[in-house]
Design a protein around this nucleic acid. Structure first.
Length: 721
DNA sequence: ATAGGGTTAG
């Protein structure tokens, strides 16, 4: 179908409707998946020496060269070669399409064919998506010269074109001169304000336009959400319900994205219920939105249920973390049975699921999904590739991440960033930096996330000077304004290296005293270097930022307690109460076969608790014989001592419990993989090293920041974390 | 003619 684009000889321009049809499809998204020239498989032309040469020496892989060639072929009316070339181009960009659109307009003028309003709005649509201001203006001029009568549709198309090309002067002029405005017009105008971050103006306009059209509601709610005003978007969604405007499938789609951002599973379930009640057909679009929402809220079982098209709906009352573990257990079973039953699944939902597996670190499920991808034969596009790389890396499998990366053979920032970040996660700073340097030498434009990856790599590998250089490079060469994440990485970089004076200087220079994350990172470094004086000062600063994280409060009150400054101890405690600070329990989890087992420090709920504790006593005894000592300074620990519970005093942290359970539940050669929701304690880090030596067992711990691979008494982080 | 889906960071 698509292969008969206007370049094919004879058929082009003779039948304007074909052109219109094709142009309508002319968006990068559609063509990404289409084979451009499928049923006219021409033999490779010998006459095209340019083309042959370009293919032979590989220069054809370069987009600039390919575009240039395309232009040459098109201009010389060598349309067969143009088609062939287009078909074989590894990538296409805006210029590729611009060449084609210009040719179209040019040919139309040459052959004296008068376009009708459909042709015109289609060409305008092309110009909008290509940001082709010159051609669009030409079309506008043509309309005026030929006395063409505007209808709302054509005028909207023109208006949208000016907005998309960011010619706001012309857009505004057109908008004000338009007599006939419909909901589409308002959508374009409000959308324009939202896209440029003019949220107040957009809301104002929304209030002033009198239409109660569902699409205008959709525009404003979606725009607020994308601008980071999730709460206001939610308020408006409720207002929409009160207003009596019925949701359509787009509204539901937007609402579900909103739910994932707010991580409000209960709301998500209610919206799911409404979808079912509304009688709207749950199409692929909506189904994937539902799946994505459930994945991002950690409710894998429901995600898979929707996947399976089983529209069951139920609610349960459990703590979020526990619930997600239960979900994964079931999800595992559901998924394997689905694979067996050959259930249909598209690449959008797979990507969501892979990404969910990554954030919860469930390797086994992730592997199953990857297996399914291979079975179906989905191409590894940038989305899927990035999420698979991330999944393997976050599940502790750097080699598999690398394997996926090698399979995806194209330059895409997210893809490369995922790989850079994966190296960083595993403490392979040099490799991360090398990959980053290589990507830049190949002309890949790094984005803000790429730099987060590079800075993380430098900080985990102790590459302080390099990190500083990249921070400057980011600001000065790439014009990226550093965000909280970059500042935090820099503080981390100096902090791990113990260069506290430089942190203070950095905080002053950048004026970032108000950022909690910055002080939190600083505090972690104080803990790592056991600098109590500095920890006191940093905690005080952190508390000034109104943090609701309990750890700095506990830490500071412990420091005051050692110094016997009882009044200050009391002040901190009161502050904690008045701010409603809640303690976030430290948890570790381990997957044994199909089950995820979660451990909390004072949790007695595990069925094999006695066995685990007994083993742990025995193990610690044996570790002491080879030099392990567990008398870590309690003051630097986040957790409060619990009186009267003997084992607490021994420091049975959750990661130790998980390790003990892992050892008694697996064969001796099997590596143990543990996940943890906070940073690993130094005592436990020590414990893992000795255990790996004593039992000759590999232990892999993923903490909130990175991976630790323990083997033969050493850790991959080189005790630098 | 407008508004809605998957990836990295948080």
């Amino acid at each position: 179908m698509v292969s008969t684009y206007c370049l094919t000889p004879k058929t082009h321009l003779k039948v304007p409707t074909i052109v219109v049809f094709l142009l309508k499809k002319l968006s990068p998204f559609h063509f990404h998946h289409c084979k451009f020239y499928s049923h006219h498989s021409l033999p490779f032309p010998r006459t095209s020496s340019l083309h042959v040469k370009a293919i032979k020496d590989g220069s054809f892989q370069n987009l600039d060269v390919a575009n240039h060639l395309l232009n040459v072929f098109v201009k010389s009316k060598n349309l067969n070669h143009a088609c062939k070339l287009f078909d074989e181009m590894p990538h296409r960009d805006v210029r590729t399409w611009t060449i084609l659109v210009s040719t179209f307009v040019h040919n139309m003028q040459n052959e004296g064919i008068k376009p009708n309003q459909f042709t015109l709005s289609s060409v305008l649509k092309c110009c909008s998506s290509l940001s082709e201001l010159k051609i669009g203006k030409g079309v506008h001029g043509w309309i005026l010269r030929n006395g063409f009568v505007f209808d709302v549709i054509l005028e909207n198309a023109l208006f949208y074109f000016y907005v998309k090309c960011e010619d706001f002067g012309s857009a505004k002029w057109l908008f004000e001169s338009m007599e006939d405005k419909n909901s589409v017009t308002w959508n374009i105008m409000i959308g324009a304000y939202l896209d440029t971050g003019n949220v107040d103006k957009a809301v104002d306009l929304f209030r002033r336009q009198g239409l109660k059209d569902v699409s205008v509601w959709n525009t404003i709610i979606n725009g607020l959400m994308r601008n980071g005003f999730e709460r206001i978007a939610l308020k408006l969604l409720y207002e929409m319900v009160k207003d009596g405007t019925l949701f359509n499938e787009v509204t539901f789609s937007i609402a579900l994205v909103l739910v994932s951002l707010l991580k409000d599973l209960e709301l998500g379930k209610r919206i799911h219920g409404r979808v079912l009640l509304s009688g709207i057909h749950v199409d692929g679009f909506l189904r994937n939105s539902l799946i994505d929402m459930y994945c991002k809220c950690g409710e894998m079982k429901m995600a898979l249920k929707v996947f399976e098209k089983m529209d069951t709906y139920f609610g349960r009352n459990e703590t979020p973390l526990k619930k997600s573990f239960l979900g994964f257990e079931d999800a595992f079973k559901t998924f394997t049975s689905m694979v067996r039953k050959d259930i249909d699944i598209d690449v959008f939902s797979i990507t969501s699921i892979v990404s969910a597996c990554a954030s919860f670190g469930v390797l086994e499920l992730g592997r199953q999904v990857h297996g399914l991808v291979q079975k179906i034969g989905h191409k590894l596009d940038a989305y899927l590739g990035s999420s698979l790389i991330d999944m393997y890396a976050k599940c502790g499998n750097l080699d598999d991440a690398k394997r996926i990366f090698k399979q995806t053979n194209y330059m895409n920032v997210v893809l490369w960033t995922s790989m850079v970040y994966s190296y960083a996660l595993h403490g392979r700073g040099r490799e991360a930096v090398q990959l980053f340097e290589f990507s830049m030498s190949r002309g890949l434009l790094p984005n803000e996330v790429t730099f987060i990856g590079v800075l993380t790599a430098c900080s985990h590998a102790g590459l302080v000077e390099e990190g500083c250089r990249y921070f400057r490079l980011m600001k000065e060469v790439y014009g990226i304004k550093p965000g909280v994440e970059h500042f935090t990485r820099m503080v981390d970089l100096y902090g791990r290296a113990g260069r506290f004076k430089e942190i203070k200087k950095f905080i002053d220079e950048n004026g970032i005293h108000h950022l909690r994350a910055v002080w939190r990172s600083f505090l972690s470094s104080c803990r790592l270097h056991r600098d109590i004086e500095m920890a006191e000062w940093v905690s005080e600063n952190l508390l000034r930022c109104q943090t609701l994280d309990a750890r700095p409060y506990v830490l500071l009150s412990n420091i005051y307690a050692i110094k016997q400054r009882w009044e200050e101890v009391e002040t901190v405690r009161r502050l904690m109460q008045s701010r409603g600070v809640k303690k976030h329990p430290c948890q570790s989890w381990i997957q044994i076969r199909n089950q995820v087992h979660a451990f909390i420090m004072d949790d007695r709920s595990h069925p094999q608790k006695n066995e685990i504790c007994a083993y742990l006593y025995k193990l610690i005894g044996r570790l002491r014989e080879i030099g392990y000592s567990s008398d870590a300074k309690l003051v630097m620990q986040d957790v409060e001592k619990k009186q009267g519970e003997g084992e607490m005093l021994l420091g049975f942290h959750s990661e130790k419990l998980a390790t003990a359970y892992g050892i008694i539940s697996t064969a001796s050669q099997t590596p143990i993989r543990i996940m943890k929701n906070l940073r690993i304690y130094d005592d436990c880090h020590n414990f893992m090293k000795y255990t790996s030596q004593l039992l000759d067992k590999e232990i892999i711990v993923r903490d909130i920041h990175r991976f630790h691979h323990f083997k033969h008494g050493c850790c991959s982080c080189g005790d630098y974390w």
